[in-house]
Design a protein around this nucleic acid. Sequence first.
DNA 1: CTGTTAGCGCATTCAC
DNA 2: GTGAATGCGCTAACAG
Lengths: 337, 337
Amino acid sequence: MSDDDHTSPSTLLDVAREAGVSPSTVSRILNGTAKVSDDKRQAVMAAIARTKFAPNLMAQGLKKGRSQTIGIVVQDISSPYFDETLRGVDDGLKGTGYASVIVSGHWNAEEEADRIRLLLARKVDGIILLSGRMSDETVLQFSGQRPIVSTGRSLNTRSALGFKLDNEYGAWMAVRHLIELGHRRIAFVSGPANNIDAEERAAGYRRALFEAGIELDPKLMVEGNFHENSGLLAVSHLFDTGQQFTAVFAANDQSAYGVRLCLYRKGIRVPDDVSLVGFDDLPGSSYTTPPLTTIRQPLYDMGLVATNALLRLIHGEPVQAQVPPLELVVRETTRRR
Amino acid sequence: MSDDDHTSPSTLLDVAREAGVSPSTVSRILNGTAKVSDDKRQAVMAAIARTKFAPNLMAQGLKKGRSQTIGIVVQDISSPYFDETLRGVDDGLKGTGYASVIVSGHWNAEEEADRIRLLLARKVDGIILLSGRMSDETVLQFSGQRPIVSTGRSLNTRSALGFKLDNEYGAWMAVRHLIELGHRRIAFVSGPANNIDAEERAAGYRRALFEAGIELDPKLMVEGNFHENSGLLAVSHLFDTGQQFTAVFAANDQSAYGVRLCLYRKGIRVPDDVSLVGFDDLPGSSYTTPPLTTIRQPLYDMGLVATNALLRLIHGEPVQAQVPPLELVVRETTRRR
DNA sequence: CTGTTAGCGCATTCAC
DNA sequence: GTGAATGCGCTAACAG
């Protein structure tokens, strides 16, 4: 009954002995490296089953210089933004024999580089870098060791690929939507300074206003950090300083959630009194109260595309990444003024 | 300028040559395995820096039979529930030299077992199993190969540890809270059938009702699947069948979000008309509108504790896992009737 | 204290 | 077709 298999796992050599053939033959069968007579193949297969053999990936890796593992650098495990992308990566890896080790850079350039060095020491076959603060030069440098594909960058060498979405355009769409609805006093909760995505979204906000002939009021722009709480604080600040506005555009969904809560606390109705638009379309955004109007970012596809691209890079094949564009998703937090 | 370091990464042997010592000496310095004279140590350190040496973890692993990697089995990457736990794992691993490879069982016992076999082939040094549908026997069996710690189970052998929270008690607290607020017609959106956690929470619901002398009305219990949409559907069904209720207890936060949306759609105010309680206290639950009253599950701590325990198991040290108990977090979706 | 030797488990020459 | 031999990079006896 009790199956005390405390025997060390069987090796390829065990299988060879068990089947009465040489180790090389077993290896050949496993890898389809050469023709092997049918009877021997049968014997080996049987031996494999009998010994419950499973190849030791570390030995394989040492020998071949590949680990069948790719490294993923996120900035924050347990952020819905990255997790949705990871789902795409996961699906992209499905059935490829590759596994992934995920590390977090915590939005810190040095930590990112450190983590990448760690991944490299583990001999990952390639790296997917999601956002981050590292310079493109550094990425390129690392790509000399292993292929890298990164989101949020424009890169295209033989061992590095980057693709980015048009944040400025996305933000423009969001604000444009508000303007078309008749809003003119539109507040903006930005992302953190020094963040390229955040800057581009701010630029889109400004352009949309400018094109509509609406003068930009700096007092309506307040800096956030992409987290919920910063959205709450931002709008709170707006009220404290007595600003008037009929709509707010938050630089990402998470800060929009914070904005929403602050509005609720103040007894201001959404969208009746104030309209709200976010950016990202996180999975949760279709279940906020009311469901959030936002700019949809194809997070899942980004993960999937990045993975497929990396796999091709690893195999030395040419790549050309293509992801769906940003789009405005009108739900229920915006209304005509 | 361009740093075409296309040279293959340096090995321990390179370092040894460069420093004019034997490979073993280098190894000894790296691992602190034995005393080494200061001058040699200096020379080696310098050589390491000069050659940018980093040990090949695959070789190390092959030699030592350890991979400095642990495997994590989640059921759904990109579910806030698991992600919060993963954050705890991540922090627990910080500075230990261990990395983790995360795989997903997708709530399917066979897939789980498959994934674990995969991890084992990769020679992970231990496994953390988060929830899942596998039988305890299977877990025990795998633990013969590598130590395992699992959440949601009661296990305690030399190579397997499991700890679980008292779901029944948690649910009881939730419903008890509602009852104390004067509610008597309390609907319940359950979790999926065959899920142990779900069953226990249902039991807690029943017990609280029973203890309060409230007769259980089966028509008020509708089955969900822990996802947002099922909460929405469930309440929708309640309305369609003309049920009367003043409160609903959802078996987890995600389904509570769905419940909330359905209520919003019907123009029913929360908590003025209907009170709502969830279960989990996901990070997002403090930012719903209004913030959700729920049963707090120490997800982060579970990840942290599991990791620390696994590390001890790996090193053959005795373990004894201790996590904070469930607690009721009263926010703004419940009110006296 | 330190160098030499011998594998870890596998894939891959090279002969036959 | 198939076996024997070799080495991937590193650590752990074993001698000195």
